[in-house]
């Protein structure tokens, strides 16, 4: 993907885009509200977490047949790796887990690997892979057309809203660790 690894992580963390970019699958434009969720910097592991996330989804996974409020927990393990835990249809004791591990090839060029562990009695591996690839290619159009490709850390350059709490926490964390690679440095006027 021709973008910075951070754009990919933020896209993965983002709930508000689901109903536009993954319309009819992971979101419904008529039910676009992102209810408040919590973000945490877990200092022991030095990870960013977003918990209590919930979003209405018409077809949350390959196995789902009806719309539901899906619950998500997001976890950013490192600047280039992120994963989510997601409600399993019909089994509240278990979670689906989907990871994105990103290998930067250059500041604005990266390879993404997506291991998944899913609870699904009916779909074939091929079905699951194709479902996830479809989601991924819907995002790719967006990711390759954000300007700049590098990530700005100045909140006045890209204006966040409450739904972006996880992105705000992630950018703060990158800033605190003084990350420079793949970061957009505004030219002095």
């Amino acid at each position: 993907m021709r973008t910075s690894p951070y754009r990919l992580v933020e896209n993965f963390l983002d709930l508000a885009h689901l109903c536009f970019i993954h319309k009819d699958i992971l979101g419904d434009p008529e039910k676009s509200e992102v209810v408040a969720y919590k973000t945490e910097h877990r200092k022991d592991a030095d990870e960013i977490w977003a918990v209590d996330c919930a979003f209405y989804q018409p077809s949350a996974s390959k196995a789902s047949t009806t719309g539901q409020m899906t619950k998500y927990i997001y976890r950013v393990m490192s600047p280039f790796s992120v994963m989510l835990y997601k409600t399993v249809n019909g089994d509240p004791s278990r979670n689906d887990a989907i990871c994105v591990f990103i290998q930067p090839l250059d500041e604005a060029d990266c390879l993404a690997y997506m291991p998944m562990a899913l609870v699904d009695e009916t779909s074939t591996d091929g079905d699951l892979i194709e479902f996830q690839q479809s989601i991924f290619l819907q995002d790719r159009v967006i990711l390759e057309n954000q300007r700049p490709a590098l990530l700005p850390l100045d909140p006045s350059y890209e204006l966040p809203t409450r739904a972006d709490a996880s992105s705000i926490a992630y950018r703060r964390w990158l800033k605190a660790m003084n990350m420079r690679f793949g970061i957009f440095e505004k030219q002095a006027a």
Binding site: C19, S32, E33, T161, R162, A163
Partner: peptide, 21 residues
């Protein structure tokens, strides 16, 4: 905007953020 559906009036002002109706 296609990404999050933010809506902009002809004078540029953002008038709607679907995540926060």
């Amino acid at each position: 905007c296609i990404y999050h559906g933010w809506s902009y009036r002809t004078d540029g002002q953002c008038i709607e953020i679907p995540a926060h109706p």
